[in-house]
């Protein structure tokens, strides 16, 4: 069975880029267009890794991260942030809320694939 990865980003261009990179490496990719959409789609989805933007309408990435952090059922969900933001304070906030990494856009496809393989291997173990 393919490992499922969700990408939550308000830009369709970014979602397509992430899908193209990860699907090419054998992952199954689910898209969400903001934090609220991601939260509703994560339930029972079996997603192993969430690639998460910060600046999004409705619910931003850090708000979603906080919501997930409070729920036991997402304790094993790995999250990597993918954003234009590079502010150390935001990175510390994400780390404190359990994120595993922070990538600044634009990303290199091979870099994202390597991160996805590493984080989903840990999750499966």
């Amino acid at each position: 069975m393919q490992t499922k990865i969700m990408v939550a980003d308000d830009s369709q261009m970014v979602r397509q880029q992430v899908r193209s990179a990860l699907a090419g490496a054998g992952f199954s990719v689910i898209e969400a267009h903001d934090g609220a959409d991601a939260l509703s789609k994560l339930d029972q989805s079996g997603v192993a890794l969430l690639v998460l933007d910060v600046n999004m309408p409705n619910m931003n990435g850090l708000e979603l991260l906080e919501a997930l952090h409070k729920k036991d059922e997402y304790a094993k969900l790995a999250v990597v942030m993918l954003t234009t933001e590079g502010q150390p304070k935001l990175m510390q906030q994400a780390k404190a809320l359990g994120a595993k990494g922070w990538i600044i856009k634009p990303f290199k496809p091979e870099q994202l694939v390597a991160v996805a393989q590493k984080l989903t291997a840990t999750t499966a173990a």
């Binding site: 234009t84 990303f107 290199k108």
Partner: peptide
């Protein structure tokens, strides 16, 4: 001040 991560860079926590 330590410069923030540059575009295209990443850090794993």
């Amino acid at each position: 001040v330590v410069p923030p991560l540059a575009e295209g860079e990443m850090v794993m926590f």
